[in-house]
Measured scan of single mutants.
Amino acid sequence: MGFKLLSKLLVYLTASIMAIASPLAFSVDSSGEYPTVSEIPVGEVRLYQIADGVWSHIATQSFDGAVYPSNGLIVRDGDELLLIDTAWGAKNTAALLAEIEKQIGLPVTRAVSTHFHDDRVGGVDVLRAAGVATYASPSTRRLAEVEGNEIPTHSLEGLSSSGDAVRFGPVELFYPGAAHSTDNLIVYVPSASVLYGGCAIYELSRTSAGNVADADLAEWPTSIERIQQHYPEAQFVIPGHGLPGGLDLLKHTTNVVKAHTNRSVVE
């Protein structure tokens, strides 16, 4: 069995187990497998329904001669939608809004960016022009300005110390501490036991640490421990890039980060 097929099978099995364990909360999309990078042309966006009122959005972007996937989250909030992270750029984010209108038909009224990198804030200006209120932590807003990236308009308070959590509509926002970046936030959907790890969490097929220019490698494993301790009931975990899975993604990420750190020390 090929690795790609095995990865998709694991996603399907995880979703099936969740649907059985929580039949009222989960209505997993039966329309197909989780979209992969090879299936999404740059400039297009796919939506994948995880649970009743919960979707991931998947886009792709060219970077350094390669094409990478990027995940975000959409959560229903009454007759409105909360968006977590842009679709990595203005063109993708405009396509995301169009796809949401086509498939869901509810307005996106608020959006949260989970850290300051372009795959999370690139497209904020498109959201703002569409009347979406954009939010991020003060740290993310400051770092985005320093980096020359787009800056969300509103500040999220109460997320300055490791372990801080605040309720934001249908989700809980959690600051686990520094990891992929010093400002990275985690998003949890309690009604569906869905954990969105953003770039602080890796997919299972990833074996290298990737972009760690703004990471705190020493603190990252401790931050992941905080996530595990705060959300032990999480059933569906979405990484910032690639295929979702279960809580095993947290341990896998820790292993990859520690291996990278150990290699760096040896070198």
Rank of each mutant, 00 (worst) to 15 (best):
P232I: 13
V121W: 01
S38Y: 10
P244C: 03
S16T: 09
A200F: 01
L247M: 14
G210Y: 06
H252I: 04
D77Q: 09
M18G: 04
L250D: 02
G169P: 07
Y34W: 10
D119I: 01
A15Y: 15
E172V: 14
L156I: 15
S208P: 14
E80D: 13
V187P: 02
P152T: 15
G43C: 12
P138S: 14
T60A: 05
N262H: 05
T207S: 09
E101N: 13
V166Q: 10
V171R: 02
Y202C: 06
A136M: 07
N211F: 15
V126L: 09
L106T: 14
P190Y: 15
E267G: 11
E33Y: 14
L47E: 01
T60W: 04
I227K: 02
Q229A: 12
D85P: 00
A178S: 13
G2E: 13
T254S: 11
V75R: 02
S139N: 04
A95Y: 14
L10T: 10
L247Y: 12
T253G: 00
G131A: 09
A130D: 12
L185E: 01
S193Q: 10
T86Q: 02
V54H: 00
N255W: 08
K8C: 06
E80S: 14
S38G: 10
T182S: 11
V45F: 03
N92W: 04
I186G: 02
R128C: 04
R167S: 06
P152M: 04
I104Q: 03
K258Y: 04
N211C: 03
E147V: 12
I186E: 01
A209I: 05
P35G: 11
C199F: 01
R141V: 08
G163M: 15
V171I: 06
G32C: 09
I58S: 08
S264C: 04
K91N: 11
E225I: 07
T134A: 11
T93R: 00
V42M: 07
A213R: 13
T114L: 00
A87F: 00
A87R: 00
L247V: 10
D248C: 13
A111Y: 13
T261P: 10
D183N: 03
S16M: 15
V42T: 12
L24D: 07
E150H: 15
Y34F: 04
P239A: 12
V28I: 04
A165N: 15
Y48C: 12
A213W: 10
V237Q: 00
Y196R: 01
E99M: 06
F63I: 07
H252M: 07
I74A: 11
D118A: 09
A90I: 15
D79F: 13
S223G: 12
S30C: 10
K4D: 05
G32P: 15
K102C: 11
G198M: 04
S155N: 13
P239C: 01
I20F: 14
V257S: 05
Y231I: 05
I40L: 10
G89A: 04
S38L: 09
Q228L: 13
T153N: 07
V132H: 01
I104G: 00
Y68Q: 06
E39P: 05
V146Q: 11
S7G: 04
A234D: 01
E219R: 11
V112Y: 05
D248Y: 07
Y188F: 11
P23M: 06
A90V: 13
L73N: 00
L73Q: 01
D183C: 00
K102L: 14
F168L: 11
V126K: 13
A234Q: 04
D125N: 05
L97I: 03
S22H: 05
S30G: 08
V166C: 05
L106Y: 15
G197M: 02
L173V: 15
P41Q: 10
T60G: 05
V28Q: 10
P170M: 04
G242P: 02
L217Q: 08
Y188I: 10
I58M: 14
S56Y: 05
F116H: 10
Y68M: 09
I238F: 07
F63A: 08
E80P: 03
A179K: 02
K4E: 14
K91I: 12
A111D: 04
P107S: 13
W88G: 00
V171E: 02
L195E: 00
F236P: 03
P170H: 07
L247I: 04
A59D: 10
P138N: 05
L195K: 01
L159G: 02
G246N: 08
R263G: 11
V212Y: 10
H180W: 01
T36W: 08
P23E: 05
R142Y: 10
F116R: 14
S27L: 07
I20G: 07
V256K: 14
E225C: 06
G242R: 03
E150D: 14
H241D: 01
S31A: 06
H260K: 04
T109Y: 11
S160F: 11
F174A: 10
Y48T: 08
T109L: 09
L6T: 08
L83Y: 01
T14A: 11
I74T: 08
E145N: 11
V54N: 01
Y175F: 14
V146G: 11
E80H: 12
A95K: 12
F116K: 04
G198Y: 01
D214L: 12
V266T: 14
E150A: 08
S137I: 12
A21C: 09
T36F: 06
